[in-house]
Design a protein around this nucleic acid. Sequence first.
DNA 1: CGAGAACTTGACTACAATCAAAGGTAGTGG
DNA 2: CCACTACCTTTGATTGTAGTCAAGTTCTCG
Lengths: 249, 249
Amino acid sequence: MKNITPNFTPASVNCDECPIKDRAVCAYCEKSEMALLEAMKSYKTYAAGDPIIFAGDRMVFVGSVVTGVARLSQTMEDGRKQMVGLLLPSDFVGRPGRSYSAFDVEATTDVTLCRFERKPFEKLLSDIPNLRERMLEMALDELDAAREWMLLLGRKTAREKIASLLTIIARRQNSTATVSKNDITFDLNLTREAMSEYLGLTLETVSRQINALKKDGVIRLEKKRQVHVKDFARLLAETGDDADGGFLA
Amino acid sequence: MKNITPNFTPASVNCDECPIKDRAVCAYCEKSEMALLEAMKSYKTYAAGDPIIFAGDRMVFVGSVVTGVARLSQTMEDGRKQMVGLLLPSDFVGRPGRSYSAFDVEATTDVTLCRFERKPFEKLLSDIPNLRERMLEMALDELDAAREWMLLLGRKTAREKIASLLTIIARRQNSTATVSKNDITFDLNLTREAMSEYLGLTLETVSRQINALKKDGVIRLEKKRQVHVKDFARLLAETGDDADGGFLA
DNA sequence: CGAGAACTTGACTACAATCAAAGGTAGTGG
DNA sequence: CCACTACCTTTGATTGTAGTCAAGTTCTCG
């Protein structure tokens, strides 16, 4: 569909040089354990927009996102679609112990996965405590994120949803240090439609609310996809979260 | 606040006789491992409506729901509230590795917990592979459930939300064998308000939609809190899920 | 039996969805 | 380079679903 992201050349990478080695599922593994994983890994790259796996498909591989952004979503028979997870580098794709995928996984940008055949990986998972340890930690983190998203989907207004999404994207693109600064510019690499799928809205409502925030001076749009926030606290106030929201010890 | 559920007398129970021993976090443990857990467990009962822990509170205990129903929820400053998890017998309360609770936990009915001090439990979790194994499995199951719930919250209509909740409760109360039967009766241990908090609706909308399903002959209400479904497939069709929804190998 | 909680119902409102059309923008090929 | 196409985005008009406000009824249990 599009050209492949060029800044990562899978074939040449050994695990020592892997950009996600400190956060991925293998993060707690020791040298000898890494060797086992390394022996069975293989890289595969997907172009932006391409499906990685469909809900209901047999799940032959599991793996980690090395570069790019993918999304986990669910689609109803009549076409209603809800994104249920955003997969960034180091996030895990697939569920050990289950042979069919419960969700659709699509590449949002070009994506490179570090893949393992599911069966052998499950074997390692039961053999290597460090692997299972990290897996559990990651699952619990994702569970917390999913639950925060449930509050957004169930209770927030359209305007609050947009503000929440913007703060999340702003936080992710700017360093944590930058978050406290009041003047921020960042790119939305999502279409209005992708945002609507994430937020449980229609794309028209997304467009209207973004422009409402702009009209009210909360944000400025440099380009359609580039947002400038003069007063980050103001944007935060629009999310409906309490002041210290999201910072849990 | 209320009287205590009488059909379970904690003090007298050893793990062999525990009603949740096959599904709880300890399910995969062997005799010797059970002994370690048994030595540190203690039961505590909470009356219906009582808080078990508040978001932000220091988390001293973790544990399993033995009897009753509890709920995990999040509240916004202005009072909007979203339930993010339903805790039934065998479900786990608390997150190992985190010292403060991210969510409110309340007893919906009278609830008995089998509690462990968090720190010693975390120690066992790293010592006993069977314990971690089951914990991971449960976390992954909850993650899937949370993601399914995101579809419900983001995209389903009020009627579909009610139908979905009813099927879930029906499934959990009747054995898996019974699910395939078409004639089912079950109790809603939840108030209309609790359902509304779960579904991201108001209690008035919950009431209206339940009565609409009744008027349309999808369900019958024996009592306000007891539902009879003559044709389970019919109820399933109302959820908006595809026919085989929820059955993933 | 009485009081409070839980539930239902009605009238009205509002927010977001839907339907529809028209600008914008980027990429393609003549 | 411009025209053409496809996609993305905005905007407007209208509808519809669920929320809000307000009684009123039915349960539960002390």
